[in-house]
Design a binder for these strands. Structure first.
Lengths: 204, 204, 204, 204
DNA sequence: CATGAATGAGCGTTCATTCAT
DNA sequence: TATGAATGAACGCTCATTCAT
């Protein structure tokens, strides 16, 4: 009985944390990180401002959690794609495509990652770790491609970083060149250059 | 006489705006965007806080200007590099190298570009314009390379965007993989993949 | 049976109150009055925050009780000292010495007495009563000394108040002049002046 | 002209600081230290909350200043009394009387001195310094009395501390024994015991 | 009677912008 | 045009008390 109520409590707590995470994410996606004030969050989650502090130490912990969750979901999906039994170039294409899709929905969350205000020592380290995991999935995929002879013997970490950069740039698309392209087309475009490069070898 | 004093006034105004821009840039580079308070700026520029509003509508306009100036200088330099009489791959290498160098000095300014707080309707448009100019230089270079047969017939805007993304990712280097590399080495790495791609064609 | 369970209930209640008092005192002595939050108290007493309100009206009542208990113990000890069969000046010396000792251990509790935040109407009256008891012990001792001819015919309440003041000042020792003195030395010093005064009568 | 406006500015600033000090003091005397919120203060001083921060770094600085001013005025008065050309016992009587008068008006300010919340490292040191100055005036007076043969060769610092304690106790008068006495009578009472002690020497 | 999450008023402080001088 | 003090809304966070379970 005690164990039951203990479990109940944990479930309620976990549920509350999830609600707060989801509400926070919703607000960030709608209003940006500056729209996420504690009062705003509490109101939207239909609790009081003070209540939030029963579940989180402070605002930073909430934001960290939201980011971590987003990253977690992203990594899970990428790992699935990366683990499929298809040629390497298809895996990379799938990764790119997924990121384009995800980003178009989660753009504001990714913005937070870029916001220097949230680069404190602690979270900086977490960011680096998260990034490393992301890179590891891609570089692992590339490493496999090299081992299987599908890819050149490039530095996997470099190739992975570069791949990420290409995808990110088309995602953000500051100049609005690719806003008419869907994720499939964008992934095609990235892969075209990423696989073959731009140099005309035959011309040499 | 009226015209003369009119001109004088404009010169004074222009001088004032420049001073404010330069001071703002100095502060951002030193303290980050959050260190740029109007009071701080006014004090460092040796004017009064209220005075700033005689030359600028609001803080956003100042930040926009600083960004624009930074962009302007960057574009000038890249145009020079792009205009040199060397093979296309050397031009692109030079562009990458310059950006790595510039970024390591101006990191804090580039941070601002990534900060969604400064993405309002008005400045968003300006950002897009600036970005387009940057892309145009690179895509122009690429177009020339295609015309001269040095490069494949890729979409120049796409190739330029992708190039930018690669460079940006290695610049930011969230995971800290490349912090030991200097700009020359980074540019080498980027070009390696950018020119040849990662696919092992011979294996097919 | 009803009476028995009634008694049981009262015992449980009394036990609960004592636990809360003791825990509060421990916290105050360790962390100061500001460390005594209801949550902190409840956790350390291993009960729930809400439960405390079954035994006390509010926080103030708890603090009042802690103070009263402290006072009670102090008074008991002073009464013992005062009741001893020794010359009056030795009794007073003993009282002073005990207070110095007590204070050095209970400093944080005495701080609370000085803190105006806890001077509400209700507790003010209680404070006055407690104080009066303390004064009564000392003034009683003095009265005895007067009756026995050991002391001048001073006003006992005045002499007692003044005695308390002297002791308190050396206890608190804001300027840190006497921090090297132990309780014996401090009591010696107090008695030296208290008994003989500072005036040089022979000089007149 | 520049000097004039500079002076003007300083005067205005000084005036503002004084207003804030006086308002703060008024509030503390009326409502206690907890009544002194920044909003409250600003409202009563008829300025905005933000304005206060043009003249003071933070709330602590204001409280420190109020205390310092109070102390300063007290010390000035005591020095005047102490410097008079009268017998030592009259000086001490005057000091006691003044303190009784002052305290009856400034009780709430003295409370702040006793409030542990305002005992941070920095202000603790200031408190000790202030206290030392107060003690020095009294101990100086006593020293003169000793040199002139009016007083015994007691330790001046001890005698001064003890004197302060006696006065303080009658000032605070927790038990309410002396609330009917005016400052003259209280000073008489203190001096009676302080000069001659309570011991009946003749009886020995 | 025990629980402990929910409450919500209240705190000190910041800073872009305004405006009387 | 220059000044810089005044503004005031907004922020994250605390904690004694309440009350549904």
């Amino acid at each position: 009985m005690a164990r039951l109520s203990q479990k109940m409590k944990e479930m309620v707590t976990e549920n509350m944390r999830r609600t707060i995470f989801e509400t926070s994410e919703k607000i960030i996606l709608r209003d940006g990180i500056d729209g996420l004030t504690m009062e705003h969050l509490a109101h939207e989650a239909e609790i009081s401002a003070g209540s939030v502090y029963n579940y989180f130490e402070n605002k930073e912990e909430i934001i960290d959690g939201v980011m971590k969750n987003m990253f977690h979901r992203l990594l899970e999906n990428l790992e699935t794609i990366s683990g499929a039994n298809v040629p390497t170039h298809e895996k990379l294409h799938g990764i790119a495509k997924f990121m384009f899709d995800d980003f178009s929905q989660k753009r504001r969350l990714f913005d937070v990652l870029m916001d220097r205000r949230h680069f404190h020592k602690h979270s900086k380290k977490k960011r680096a770790e998260g990034h490393m995991k992301l890179l590891n999935i891609i570089s692992g995929t590339i490493k496999n491609g090299i081992d299987s002879g599908e890819l050149h013997a490039v530095e996997p970490e470099l190739a992975a970083s570069v791949f990420l950069g290409m995808v990110r740039e088309l995602q953000i698309d500051h100049a609005g060149i690719f806003k008419k392209c869907n994720s499939q087309e964008l992934a095609d475009k990235v892969m075209l250059i990423y696989l073959s490069g731009i140099e005309n070898k035959g011309a040499k």
